[in-house]
């Protein structure tokens, strides 16, 4: 990444869903700058477009209008291969529904980003095991998602988001659908990881303000 201090820069972003006759304007001219090493929480009631924005920031979706510059690069101008590289190396995404591969073990789930970084198997295993260990799930490595509790699944998702040392971590409602105790656990995990991330700027979506 360049020396540019501003990591994320969106200007006047709109997202419109065309539902037959009806247009749903999920984002209406959002502008936002996020610097390096910044820890940002975006809050809003359900349906206010948080996930939509997050998907755009994570280079999974494209805005209908407006510009998104990621470390100076205009995202809409990037090709598939470059976007895949960014999603793989620069962004760690913790989805609201975790999005784990149901048929794969926790370990394999955490390995996935490493596969697409072209890491060799041995190295992959090791890095994934370390990441799982950090979230306290080393002993659940061979479990499939349906053999894990909700909180454990979320921790697998966190391990997966962190395993490739991304510059940006995006978490969609990290505490939203879990009980408070697990939510706290995860927050602690995040702050722990933050120390290790010199370049990391973490975004949280709808963190319970009382807990921060």
């Amino acid at each position: 990444m360049s020396k540019n201090r501003v990591a994320i820069e969106i200007v006047d972003v709109e997202k419109v869903y065309q539902m037959g006759e009806v247009q749903v304007r999920a984002l209406r001219g959002v502008s936002l700058n996020i610097d390096r090493n910044e820890y940002v929480a975006i809050m809003g009631p359900s349906g206010s477009g948080k996930s939509t924005l997050m998907n755009i920031l994570g280079c999974l979706d494209t805005p209908t209008r407006g510009s998104y510059r990621l470390v100076g690069e205009e995202v809409s101008k990037l090709n598939d291969s470059r976007l895949a590289h960014i999603r793989n190396r620069e962004i760690g995404f913790i989805f609201q529904t975790f999005n784990l591969l149901a048929r794969a073990t926790a370990l394999h789930n955490v390995e996935l980003p490493l596969i697409y970084s072209g890491r060799r198997k041995k190295e992959r295993r090791k890095m994934a095991m370390i990441a799982l260990d950090r979230v306290g799930l080393a002993d659940r490595a061979e479990h499939k998602p349906n053999e894990l509790s909700g909180g454990q699944r979320q921790r697998v998702a966190i391990a997966r988001a962190l395993v490739n040392n991304p510059a940006i971590i995006l978490a969609d409602e990290p505490t939203g659908n879990l009980d408070t105790k697990i939510g706290m656990e995860i927050l602690e995990l995040h702050s722990h990881r933050m120390v290790g991330f010199r370049d990391g700027s973490i975004e949280f979506d709808k963190i319970n303000p009382n807990r921060l």
């Binding site: 598939d80 895949a84 999603r87 793989n88 999005n99 996935l112």
Partner: peptide
Amino acid sequence: TREIGIRKALGAKQLN
């Protein structure tokens, strides 16, 4: 389809 989406979100290229 979801698996493909997940893989792409984690950095799989079209070629992968």
